[in-house]
Design a protein around this nucleic acid. Structure first.
Lengths: 241, 241
DNA sequence: CGTTAATTTGAGACCATTCAATTTCGGTGG
DNA sequence: CCACCGAAATTGAATGGTCTCAAATTAACG
């Protein structure tokens, strides 16, 4: 069950960054779009392809990734409903990475020109999108730190902290219980580890009573200690409030 | 010896992304700014500090980094003359990472409000800055891949390829000889390796006849093979031409 | 319920780290 | 211009975290 209006999540998200006038909100909701859905593990966007539209994730999880010559995969970010999957592609012209769905996803596809017009007209929206983009980049930076300088326990713990923070901010979950459909292989590809070692690391976090994770459900048992282990400082998420 | 006008590098850089009208160029050159210089290894921007100005690098090398609780450091990007060191901070308000100089640096500090006005007035400049920001983010993504999924040889080779490409595009170097003042410790912190292992890795690249690197001077001897080793595909730099 | 995907376990190998010492380089003052 | 000094680069040996490979178990799905 989605919102009354499909693009409502956009308004909700952006109004967290800036004050949107009723006028702005109307303009956002008036954007033309077409719905598209994807099955599990589907390619939403392919590296090298030209981008003439932007894809907003409405439902489900998705991630960006790059494949290396040797077949290995590095996941670059995870995305949750309300987030654009490829704002940058619309402007840079070519996708420089792939986007895949985690589970069944619903998206709204907006023609890039319509979005450009909106941004040209509405300074407040422009600022909101700008902030969104910068936060994205900030998360990338933190991920460099995560894979570059933390050991496996810290990497996984940090990633979990980030996801929990973002999901809860998005209104998901309660009592620390969250839908968390990522496979261990995906967690591995996001943290630069192998699936096997990710498995052992998760077990270690479970053994220490920090989390519960099974069947696509995550429960954080000891938030404070998980942050401690993951060296998690949420400044980089730039979440006001 | 810098340009006739200090901000000329900005015009040069941005006009590679979009067509700037004479009007636009004038507006850029009319930006108010103050010069500031830094010695080797100085802090240009500190994490957590509020940002009321934006710093443009005119001369020298700089890098962004984050420090971890255990004292280790991860370098997030390197910067060469003509690049802004903290465009995002001006908008997000707080610096979420540190910026340090590599060697003696000259910068131009522009009040954030002046820059905001410029962007509000000039759509072409706005687009150029937007593209700059997105390319930055694209480089961050590639760095995640680099530290996440490549072995030490590939990491170093990839980083060298990137720097050479960016420097040459910036007009530095000739005959494949470049000023390259980064220490092995900095290369290590950028690739998520230790200084010791970076040293051995560089030796291996030298032994194979791919590069020459000493006394702050880099010479690429076998460009093709270095790219091969580093799994370097420059699409992510989004450099037209 | 059968079939495939995902998780789990074990053991051995290896890449990169750690720690410590040595050599070389770059800059400075006499 | 040389002697000196601290920073940077280099070397060696031992340790260790993570990977690899392979097999077993459990969960997900039509």
């Amino acid at each position: 069950m989605l919102d009354v209006h499909d693009l409502a999540p956009l308004v909700r998200r952006w109004s967290k960054h800036v004050d949107l006038a009723p006028d702005d909100e109307d303009a956002i909701l008036a954007l033309p779009f077409t719905r598209r859905s994807f099955g599990k593990d589907a390619y939403v966007i392919r590296e090298g392809h030209e981008a003439v539209e932007c894809t907003l994730l409405l439902k489900g999880f998705a991630f960006r990734q790059k494949l290396l010559r040797d077949g290995s995969r590095q996941i670059i970010s995870f995305h949750i409903p309300g987030e654009f999957l490829d704002l940058q592609n619309g402007i840079l012209g070519v996708a420089d990475h792939n986007v895949q769905s985690v589970n069944r996803c619903e998206t709204a596809v907006v023609p890039r020109a319509a979005l450009a017009d909106l941004l040209a007209d509405k300074p407040a929206i422009r600022l909101a999108v700008w902030i969104d983009t910068l936060i994205d980049a900030s998360i990338f930076r933190e991920w460099i730190v995560n894979v570059g300088r933390r050991d496996s326990r810290a990497r996984i713990a940090h990633l979990l902290c980030e996801m929990v923070t973002r999901l809860e901010r998005n209104g998901a979950g309660s009592d620390g219980i969250l839908d968390f459909p990522l496979t261990q292989e995906q967690l591995a590809d996001a943290t630069g580890l192998t699936a096997v070692h990710t498995n052992r690391t998760l077990q270690s976090l479970r053994r220490d009573g920090l989390i519960q994770l099974s069947n696509g459900i995550l429960r954080v048992l000891d938030r404070k200690e998980l942050r401690e282990v993951g060296d998690f400082e949420e400044l980089y998420l730039h979440q006001k409030l």
